[in-house]
Amino acid sequence: MVARGLGKTYRVADKQPGLGGTLRHFLRRRHRDVPAVTDVSFTIQPGEIVGFLGPNGAGKTTTLKMLTGLIHPTAGSATVAGYTPHRRQRGFLTAITLVMGQKQQLIWDLPPLDSLRVNAAVYGLDDSEAKRRIDELAEMLELGEELTRPVRKLSLGQRMKAELMAALLHRPAVLFLDEPSLGLDVNAQARVRQFLVDYNRRTGATVLLTSHYMADITALCPRVLLIHGGRLFYDGRLARLSERLAPWRQVRLELAQPLPAETFHPYGELESLDGAAVRLLIPRQQLTEAVARLLNELPVLDLEVSDPPIEELIGRLFRKGVVA
């Protein structure tokens, strides 16, 4: 997969508020060009699993859509599995798949097996081959009698796994996954993650994945692409990136009574303060000591340590200009 100087600029209507603005807009429409993605270049080798990170609105989905052929780039070019995506030739469409968290391709009122049969026919799999692949995927995803239950009766996690089955039945060589674990509970997230690792190992498929969950990225992606404001800021090993990101851990506190903001400066960086609820970012190497001091010195009712959401870490990174 190769992207060379890939860019997308949207034309949006520019309208001032109020009646005057509306009339002016009606008579003389004005447009503004808004760049969503600018000059993005990278190469992904067959079989690689790459994480695609960036805050909301950074251009992740636009880039994925350009690589799947759903959006025509306004600059640069892309080659995926040997094809130009936006031509959407049949060879290309059978070589790729796109899984978008909440967009379902399963027929709501029928069991997943019916949708799988349709996909098998569309991708030209004969009955015995389709059955073999359905059995294999069902085993990997731990789906059984759920496949004969109407989709609307399935839990979110079961539905997501059935979506993955439908998206992978034709055994695509390139997977684009946009938030594949969004909304799933921790167990279901872990199972989907394990499945993706197994699938990649078994088929040698290339995977490009976006996720809000740091755990997805650390478990799956040795390499990450970091995009912000439509530009690619980082392309490299996750280990090197997490040296910059991971020194921070998030500590949530619930106090017996509200305290002024200055109180928390000696312990770490104050992220938010809402009455008695406090969120701090504390360097990893000082974590044990800082937590012990917090418990000793402040009226703490509850304390929770977690990885900060990836968006927040990346946001900090950009605010501090570490990457730029």
Partner: peptide, 12 residues
């Protein structure tokens, strides 16, 4: 509902 994009990515 956004179902068109998945349809457009299938060879049918």
């Amino acid at each position: 509902a956004g179902r068109l994009s998945p349809y457009l990515l299938q060879p049918l």
